[in-house]
């Protein structure tokens, strides 16, 4: 059973998750008429910057986060920014988009100079997230768990981060049992996406260098 405190915790996180989104106009820009590779590059860079700012605003609302040591807060955000960005953008691809939008977005990313070897794993990840048909609460909690990963580089007080992450994992575990009674493996599958996300973010550094070269 989800306790009252856990309900309140979930509500705080879900509200913050919905409140802090990429500005609509920026997301729409991605769908407008054809841009050159350079313009695509600038647009995606601008989007990435905005996603980091949105991530920080969301993270400030995670109960307990601001009580952590300031440098640990920065280490957690720096360590999770790319993963949180892919997780968030995966939901854009899995949400029922008006017909054609997903194709336009996919085309846009394919034409932005990112080499093929990185695009395939990225879209595979988007597909595997889409297949889970995650609820909003699950997306918000999974993003929070990604951010509160204790073993990020430069984190000094890993136990403090672990305690926070554990509370969120417990809520998500219960939520998955309640919302997916016929899928006992659902929680494990969600966590499995986090490992896939880590490999994707290892690609990301190489992706950036190859992008600059192109």
């Amino acid at each position: 059973e989800i306790t009252k405190e856990q309900q309140a915790l979930m509500k705080v996180i879900l509200d913050a998750y919905n409140r802090h989104q990429i500005p609509q106009d920026m997301a729409k820009k991605l769908l407008q008429d054809q841009y050159s590779a350079e313009e695509n590059f600038l647009l995606l860079t601008e989007m990435a910057t905005s996603q980091v700012q949105v991530l920080v605003e969301f993270t400030k609302n995670i109960p307990g986060f601001l009580t952590l040591d300031r440098e640990d807060q920065i280490a957690l955000l720096k360590g999770s920014a790319v993963e949180a960005m892919f997780l968030r953008s995966a939901q854009v691809f899995s949400r029922k988009m008006p017909n054609g939008h997903t194709e336009v977005l996919e085309e846009r990313i394919r034409k932005s100079g990112i080499s093929e070897e990185f695009i395939t794993p990225m879209f595979n990840f988007y597909k595997s997230i889409g297949e889970l048909h995650m609820m909003q609460e699950e997306q918000a909690l999974l993003t929070t768990i990604t951010i509160l990963t204790p073993d990020r580089p430069y984190v000094k007080d890993q136990q403090a981060v672990e305690r926070l992450q554990e509370t969120i994992l417990d809520v998500l575990r219960k939520l998955c049992v309640l919302q997916h009674p016929q899928e006992p493996q659902y929680f494990a599958r969600l966590l499995g996406r986090l490992t896939e996300l880590r490999t994707l973010s290892h690609y990301h550094a190489e992706m950036l260098t190859s992008w600059r070269v192109n």
């Binding site: 600038l42 860079t45 910057t49 980091v52 700012q53 920080v56 807060q73 920065i74």
Partner: peptide, 21 residues
């Protein structure tokens, strides 16, 4: 503009809450 700041700078600025600077 924010987009040519490094990742850490963007994070520090946003954490400090003075994005408008």
């Amino acid at each position: 503009p924010a987009s040519n700041l490094g990742l850490e700078d963007i994070i520090r600025k946003a954490l400090m809450g003075n994005l408008e600077e």
